[in-house]
């Protein structure tokens, strides 16, 4: 029984430490990368790998129980909303006219129409 608890602790340690490492790498990328479009990608590292690993680690540490259920709910919520807010930010930047600098020998596909999305219609 003891070795099982030990294995659980070691697994939690590993998950939390690697998650923290990804958070730091993502934040470092947000500072280091040269322009907005590149930084978007750095920002999605903490949102995906860092968040998943940290929550997994905390869940492993907590074991089964109400705490783990809450962790899973928060994790699922972040899993769904993280990319959505990244997409919203990128889309707003695109609509405002900000364009990425293309790599050598590449040409950007343009959006079909730059008009902002129509507002949802009100029901009568």
């Amino acid at each position: 029984m003891n070795w099982l608890a030990n294995a659980q602790e070691i697994l939690a340690w590993g998950l939390i430490l690697s998650g923290s490492a990804f958070l730091l790498i993502g934040a470092f990328g947000i500072v280091r990368l040269p322009d907005f479009w590149a930084r978007l990608h750095a920002a999605s590292i903490p949102d995906s790998a860092g968040m998943i690993l940290l929550f997994l680690g905390m869940a492993v540490h907590a074991g089964f129980g109400l705490v783990t259920v809450k962790l899973v709910i928060i994790g699922l919520f972040l899993f769904l909303t993280g990319p959505t807010s990244t997409h919203a930010t990128a889309n707003a930047a695109l609509v405002s006219g900000l364009r990425p600098r293309e790599g050598e020998g590449l040409e950007a596909d343009e959006p079909l129409e730059l008009a902002p999305d129509p507002q949802p219609e009100r029901a009568p």
Binding site: H41, A90, P111
Partner: peptide
């Protein structure tokens, strides 16, 4: 978007 390195910017 979840896989870093690629981001959906516009849906058409």
């Amino acid at each position: 978007t979840l896989t870093p390195g690629t981001i959906t910017i516009e849906t058409e």
